[in-house]
Design a protein around this nucleic acid. Structure first.
Lengths: 258, 258
DNA sequence: CCGCGATTCGCACCAGGTGCGAAACGGGAC
DNA sequence: GTCCCGTTTCGCACCTGGTGCGAATCGCGG
């Protein structure tokens, strides 16, 4: 290792990283990429590129539309994407709990799972007509200090973790109610820890309020959240019922784990 | 190469293939997999496994839930899955065309893209209340000789291609109207080629009919289909209008390509 | 029939990847 | 606290698998 690699860290392999990089690159261009483009973009030899593309194609990670010589993502990517969704939800029993929460709260119910600084939306149980968190869908979502489950995720971290998060995602003002001051936010998190509950009113979207309870592994570690969203107007007089609903749902899911 | 590889073909690399295999394996187990399990399943050395897992984790292809030591699929997989859907649909203009087809036909409109022997559902335009092809969603779908777009895909192939397809997917009888005889099917395909249109009545699902027109690249090659599904009862007296709608939609999309 | 991109093939070199063993974590159990 | 067991990282020597180059082949449009 003559210290000339553009590869930041020490350990690792090369071709593996390259295939993955290719995959991302192919995914990033809406109309796919040609072998030559890929080689150029990643600084690879053309032969090497074709060999790696072959490996990807053989396993159906990439493919090409009839007659075109551009590579685009393939069937396996689709399969993996679906698998991811299943992994997040795991059991049908979990869905059932969410359905109950939804029914009890008369509001959209969400199950989110925490993954480092990321938030994965595992499941959404909803019926038409309720105020929903805009553009939230199953899959990964941008973590935000302004959502109830975001607060819960942050509250699960220690000071270092919170600091690191804030470095990367500085607290933006999404609405006029968003908390943007780091100290104020830390105080909120203390409150969240004490109550084992996070509440947010119009911090993320105006007119919208959200309440979330922690899902815990049997070790006690917070690994996700059950939450519901309602209109800010409704929130004040229904707060207690909503709290009951999410607490109950989170408890049920927690006890189902493992 | 002492001819002892369990790897069927000649060319290829190893670690690349291994990462991909790991990815699939992790995706295949609903609750994820531990490093040890993966190593065992793929016959890898533990050290190697960790190194490869490290590569995958660093690029966020896999991750783990807080506190658990099982690996599950990560954020990048989600990103790629979404990218795939965009690649299939490409432009908003295409969606607009489908919307028009949907409106004109008063029926669900589908855009499918052909990829070898696979069919990818690129987009569905629908409103509640219409008879829809069961369980069809955006992403890859099993190709079938009993669907209108399946016939179109087959018609785009030469005799060898059709034969190869039939070897792998023998024509099953999904309903009492399904065509299961290879010769009869070939005749159907000739008709499809002549008409540049595929029709199917209750061959795939009873009570359901489907009509599809080919989308062509500027080279003239058939690369996909625009189709609609209606109840079999409706089909007879609306056939002409439906044909117009899909032909028009397919034409518009074809002319938009590139 | 020629020419130009895309794609595959062959081969020699050598650095990246592998496997092994051992060491450092980490967290329950007692 | 201490011991144990499973997980994860580290170091190192060997050598195989991967790379890059050039040439050959394919496929198509003119």
């Amino acid at each position: 290792m003559t210290a000339e690699g553009q590869n930041g860290d020490g350990s690792g392999n090369r071709s593996a990283e390259r295939v993955l990089r290719i995959l991302e690159l192919v995914g990033a261009s809406p109309s796919g990429a040609t072998a030559a483009e890929i080689a150029a973009a990643l600084g690879l030899n053309l032969s090497t590129t074709y060999r790696l593309l072959g490996t990807l194609a053989r396993q159906d990670y990439i493919g090409r539309q009839a007659g075109d010589h551009r590579y685009i993502l393939g069937r396996t990517v689709d399969t993996l994407g679906r698998a991811l969704r299943y992994q997040l939800v795991a059991t049908p029993a979990v869905r059932a709990v969410l359905r109950d929460v939804h029914a009890a709260a008369h509001a959209p119910a969400y199950l989110t799972v925490f993954r480092g600084d990321d938030i994965a939306v595992a499941h959404i149980e909803d019926s038409p007509g309720y105020p929903r968190i805009g553009q939230l869908h199953v899959g990964f979502a941008e973590a935000s200090h302004a959502t109830a489950f975001g607060k819960l995720m942050l509250a699960a971290k220690d000071d270092v973790g919170v600091a690191r998060f804030l470095e990367r995602h500085s607290p933006l003002a999404l609405t006029s109610h968003s908390v943007t001051d780091a100290t104020a936010l830390r105080e909120q998190l203390d409150e969240v820890r004490a109550q084992q509950l996070a509440v947010e009113v119009e911090e993320y979207m105006s007119q919208l309020a959200c309440i979330a309870a922690p899902v815990k592994a049997k070790s006690g570690k917070v690994i996700g959240a059950v939450s519901v969203s309602v209109s800010a107007a409704d929130f004040s007089h229904r707060a207690y019922d909503l709290e009951r609903a999410v607490r109950r749902g989170a408890w049920q899911i927690s006890s189902q784990i493992e």
